[in-house]
């Protein structure tokens, strides 16, 4: 499976690169020999289709398993189709843990921390990219250096800090420590650096203040970057497990990944229910991804200058 997937992935990248070429040549397209032949186009779609299918297999596998009875789950070679379909697994999975509450918490935590992180990162990134102050580079290096500290090392000290703040088992503990991300700052800074200087000069001449400039000009122009940072954050927050478990004590404060552990014990895992729960717990991520996809594809920052 693995080599297949790799070569298909390679084919996909190539296939993606191909149609982009004529476009890059812009208006000269007709001179350059016109469109791709139907055969080439067919080959591209085929390669893309195979790539997409391979990417989809784990998801199909998840759905298939989630609809099986337990005694079919580990049968090898696996059956892809069988009867009757066990829709009830979804109900059973939902009832295994307080998933309603977990969903609510996951959404609150992910949304709030994503919004706050985008704000803090944008401000910090702007300062690092466009402002001059004493020790700027040293500070930035320190910030980058902090990426190298593994999370496990920080777990206990962070926990103790939260205990001192009496934040254990509150939303504060789930959100506040996660509203700054060095990766986000770095990523946004690089994007802001690429914006043309003329924009900043124009802003200054028109008497636009720093904040206003950031919110009204820089961020709208960096939509793809903001979307990327936000999406990473959202997914990270959605999947976050150990931190949530450590800083909460009641089911009321926990999130979906904690719910997913209910299906495993040291002697066995209830695979079909686990897959059902995984399926419904990734729905919001899926929806979000489709909504944000446009921004990804629009990828190239429009400079706003002609």
């Amino acid at each position: 499976m693995a080599p297949d997937a790799q070569s298909a992935a390679g084919a996909t990248t190539q296939a993606v690169a191909l149609p982009a070429q004529p476009r890059r040549k812009g208006r000269k397209r007709s001179e350059a020999g016109g469109r791709l032949s139907p055969l080439a186009l067919g080959a591209i779609y085929l390669a893309l289709g195979i790539g997409a299918f391979i990417m989809l297999i784990p998801f199909i596998w998840m759905i298939v398993t989630s609809l099986k009875p337990m005694n079919e789950v580990t049968v090898f070679p696996p059956k892809w189709i069988w009867w009757p379909i066990h829709w009830h697994n979804y109900v059973d999975a939902w009832r295994t843990a307080p998933f309603g509450r977990y969903f609510f918490n996951s959404i609150v935590v992910a949304v709030v921390s994503t919004v706050l992180e985008v704000i803090t990162c944008a401000m910090a990134a702007y300062a690092f990219a466009r402002m001059n102050f004493f020790g700027k580079n040293t500070l930035f290096m320190l910030l980058l250096g902090s990426i190298m500290v593994p999370g496990e090392v920080l777990l206990v000290p962070n926990f103790i800090t939260l205990v001192r703040l009496s934040w254990i088992d509150t939303y504060w503990a789930l959100i506040i420590p996660w509203i700054v991300s060095v990766f986000g700052i770095f990523f946004m800074r690089q994007a802001f650096l690429q914006l043309p200087n003329e924009l900043f000069d124009a802003g200054k001449i028109d008497g636009c203040g720093t904040f206003r400039f950031l919110w009204r000009v820089v961020l709208p122009l960096s939509k793809p970057v903001v979307t990327t940072v936000a999406l990473f954050k959202f997914i990270g927050s959605w999947n976050s497990f150990l931190w949530v478990l450590i800083v909460t004590n009641t089911p009321n404060m926990r999130t979906i990944p904690v719910g997913l552990t209910y299906f495993s014990t040291e002697v066995g895992t209830t695979y079909n229910l686990l897959m059902a729960a995984s399926a419904f717990s990734m729905l919001p991520i899926l929806v979000l991804f489709f909504l944000a996809q446009k921004q990804f594809i629009q990828g190239i920052a429009r400079t706003g200058l002609k």
Binding site: L155, V156, F159, I160, V163, I168, I246
Partner: peptide, 8 residues
């Protein structure tokens, strides 16, 4: 471990 370290 974390709870014992923080006295909770």
């Amino acid at each position: 471990t974390a709870a014992l370290a923080s006295g909770t």
